[in-house]
Design a protein around this nucleic acid. Sequence first.
DNA 1: TTGTAGGCGTTATCAG
DNA 2: CTGATAACGCCTACAA
Lengths: 322, 322
Amino acid sequence: MITMTEIARLAHVSQPTVSRVLNGKPNVAPEIRERVLACAREHDYQFNVLAKSLQGSRTQLLGVLVSDVSNSFFADLSKQIEAEARKYGYSMILFNSDYNVQREREYLTVARQYRVDGVLAAPVQERGAEWRESVQKLDIPVVAVTQRVEGVDCVYVDHMEAGAMVAKHMAERGYGRFLYIGEEQSAKYAGFRSALADLGHGDRVECTASSDSRQLSAFLETWFRRPSYRTGIFTENDLCALRVLSILRELGVPVPRRAGVMGFDNISVGRYLNPGLSSVSQPIGLMAEQAVSRLLHRMDHPMGEPALELALPAELVVREST
Amino acid sequence: MITMTEIARLAHVSQPTVSRVLNGKPNVAPEIRERVLACAREHDYQFNVLAKSLQGSRTQLLGVLVSDVSNSFFADLSKQIEAEARKYGYSMILFNSDYNVQREREYLTVARQYRVDGVLAAPVQERGAEWRESVQKLDIPVVAVTQRVEGVDCVYVDHMEAGAMVAKHMAERGYGRFLYIGEEQSAKYAGFRSALADLGHGDRVECTASSDSRQLSAFLETWFRRPSYRTGIFTENDLCALRVLSILRELGVPVPRRAGVMGFDNISVGRYLNPGLSSVSQPIGLMAEQAVSRLLHRMDHPMGEPALELALPAELVVREST
DNA sequence: TTGTAGGCGTTATCAG
DNA sequence: CTGATAACGCCTACAA
């Protein structure tokens, strides 16, 4: 690939002059400008961004760290982030932590080795003082997306509040028993549970892990064998809700009559399901936009301002499953 | 971020010595090695990959160009590619062409500006002599994924053959009318159509575009209003199949009795649908593996060998929708 | 075993 | 308006 120095030689000018031309600086004689441009075009010159950023300028690279791009929610998020970053001339190195805290850390160091100008991370750990600290002593600005992290710039929806919204909706729909499928410590569950308590259903909530499909299936079979109230099921995300719906179908549990199912993330296929999946929608586009903009801002003001913790509104998307 | 030169100053040695230590080269006095390592650890030294690659060595960056990560197929593909690349110490810059040929070209030049060691591309254009040429005169190795491109390294499944498999399956299932939803020029359609012709259904195949949902809905309504044979519908991808299923449900067309639907890509949510979506599965993991390995190989042998055109087997995944 | 010198492709500074 | 020159962080000779 041709370099400025080579163009300089071909055009019989000095290399800095070539630099001036290619960067569109003023104060270059028109004829020289033309000569250089012609030569650059002819050889399809491309800037060497790496060499450029050696001078202390920006790399124009963003590190984007998600737990799993194959989850449509993160796929959508990555897409929006890429589109948003592109507006500012940024490209994105994508890292997949695979829900692995160890790899999350590794990728953070890889991102630094590439001298990315900043990192957008959807951190795995929900409540991580540890994560905050490891991020804070980093010399690269980091914005957390989807999760609140105290003392770190972050853009997120309030999971507590979302859980409460779900609880309220399910109570209104007349469900009398409740099930949360996901991690017991999650903020969604906390909000769900506490709102149900306020509604007088405090002792009718249970929680079970989602990880093992067979186990989950067995659990639901037992649950619905005993005659009981109509059950509102809230899952940690839509993928999990899909599995639940599929299990309920196998068990012959009618949805939404006997069981209501509400997911989280409102992935795009939800509306095409049968029954359509009710879900909590996060404003992905807005999150991406705000997160990128905050990150770029932070690059210029590394320490100055206090962390911005931006809570965005979640929205209930009610379809046939509740 | 601390540099080798600074460590050198702090440890009272020369910068190349620091380089030797940090790169684990032999012939360094143990005590100096310790001193340097201690200092590096203390200040959390990280290599500057960019500076490294200025010397002509590799950037350890791969450009990955897809049309739309938010399509689960490409999301899965990106994920597998990332995992595979990581094994060789490579990171991935992700580009989203958004099915836009113009942006595809732009991203190719951006990739070059970053001096990526190679590019994996799922090209938009199905039959592009133009694309081949633009890629061939690139100074960076490119491997096409998912599409065959003559004269360019590529890893793909044979869409013609896949289309034929679908035709055969649908004929066996007793459908007597056929519909392809997608671009008329696509290889899938060609294979579908020609196989149907061989089966004596040559004049019972139609094709309609998928782009406009309302239009598609109107088309299907008209189609199913007239009493006709049972119809086998083959869609260009699973996302499209989802929309079709949803429209058929609205129209009250029973699936698979009156209409059979088969998608393409076998995205993971397909099995959770109701009815479960029949589809053509592409071996994503294998494709990623082969494509990355081919790309790395090509880096070491830029021109030597002829292009590898690797056709991988597609597989019919039959569920309740056919 | 260690240090010095040069270069990778740029940009910035300063002199002419 | 243009060209030397130094610098960015690192590596690879080569010299001591």
